Simulated assay, not measured.
Amino acid sequence: MAAPIKFGVGQSVLRKEDDALIRGKGRYTDDLAPQASLHALVVRSPHAHATFTLDATKARALPGVALILTADDISDLGGLPCLFNFEVDPFTGPPYPILAKGEVRHVGDAIAFVVAETADKARDAIEAIEISWMPLPAVTGVVNAVKQDAPQVWPSHPGNILFDVAIGDKKATDEVFAKAHAVAEISIVNPRVVASFMETRAAICEYDAKRDHLTLTVGSQGSHRLRDILCQNVLNIPVEKMRVICPDVGGGFGT
């Protein structure tokens, strides 16, 4: 019998990262925060679907508040791109703005970005922002969303259907079922999931004015792709203007 290969199944693998992690010496995003950092929080919608008006005048005047951005302030930036490769021609996904303007379409939709000297001062500013919500009809679950009289999320996509993909030979499949002695049917619900890491999602961005260069430290599993998406699709700047650093990540597990 031949000896097992060096890296075959069942062979021990030398792990390089465990020693520091089990001793509490891991370096996560929050461990790298510079002392002089400003802190940013996002104002998000509590409604699944609503129109709204927003006035941040009083919040901007609070002590310690450095910046409050709304949709009108970032009209020169791109939206959040959908970069999956669907076999649909053409793929016409609706826009997904960084900050919603006038209407939100899901709970947690971002409407304002608040920057202050401390996280507590940012929270105070959020509470001072005057927001008037006008809730709209909404449904929960895909089955309800595609019903005939369901409230529409995007006017450009009637029936709340973005795309419909058929896989396989429909004619041949129908013929097989037509000749079958018995047919069993089952309804399988695939729940929506959220990729929630053990580490709270955080990001630290440092701007070098002399070089006109950004350094982003973030708990991510793909630094190059993240840099390219941010630069090319959102910020509209050359990729050479940003470096993304990924320290230890608090648990991704295939998200």
Rank of each mutant, 00 (worst) to 15 (best):
H39S: 06
A56D: 02
T51N: 05
V42R: 00
L69D: 07
A61K: 12
V65I: 13
V65A: 05
G26Y: 13
D18I: 14
G79V: 06
D19K: 13
L38E: 05
S75D: 13
D76C: 12
L32E: 05
L32N: 04
L54T: 00
A61P: 01
H39P: 02
A33E: 12
V42D: 00
L77P: 01
D72L: 14
T70G: 10
S37T: 11
G24T: 12
L67R: 14
G78R: 02
L38R: 07
K16R: 13
A71R: 08
R60T: 01
L38W: 06
L69C: 10
A40K: 04
K58E: 15
E17L: 12
T29Y: 07
H47N: 05
T70L: 06
D18G: 07
A50L: 03
P34L: 09
D30T: 11
G78F: 07
L62K: 01
E17H: 14
A33V: 15
L62G: 02
I68N: 01
V43E: 01
L21V: 11
P34Q: 10
S75K: 15
V42M: 07
D72M: 13
H47R: 05
H39Q: 06
A33M: 11
T57G: 02
D76K: 14
D72Y: 11
R27I: 14
T51I: 01
L38K: 09
A56C: 08
H49I: 05
R44F: 04
D19R: 14
D76P: 03
K58Y: 02
P46R: 10
S75E: 15
K25G: 10
D76A: 15
A59R: 00
L32T: 04
L32I: 07
F52I: 07
K25Y: 10
G24K: 14
V43D: 04
R27V: 15
H39G: 02
A33P: 00
A48C: 05
R60G: 00
Y28S: 10
I22F: 13
V43H: 00
P46E: 08
G26A: 15
A56W: 00
A59S: 06
D19Y: 13
T29S: 09
A56M: 02
T70W: 07
G24Y: 07
H39A: 05
G26F: 13
I74Q: 07
L32Y: 09
L67H: 11
G64Q: 05
P81S: 08
D30R: 15
P81H: 08
A48P: 03
T70E: 15
P46H: 09
H47T: 01
D55M: 02
L62N: 01
A20P: 03
A33C: 13
K25N: 13
S45N: 04
Q35I: 13
R44Y: 04
G64M: 04
S37K: 09
L80W: 12
D55V: 01
D76M: 12
A66H: 09
D30M: 12
T29F: 06
A48R: 11
I22A: 09
D18R: 12
P46T: 07
S75L: 14
L54F: 02
I68Q: 01
D19M: 13
I74W: 03
R44N: 03
T53Y: 02
P81W: 08
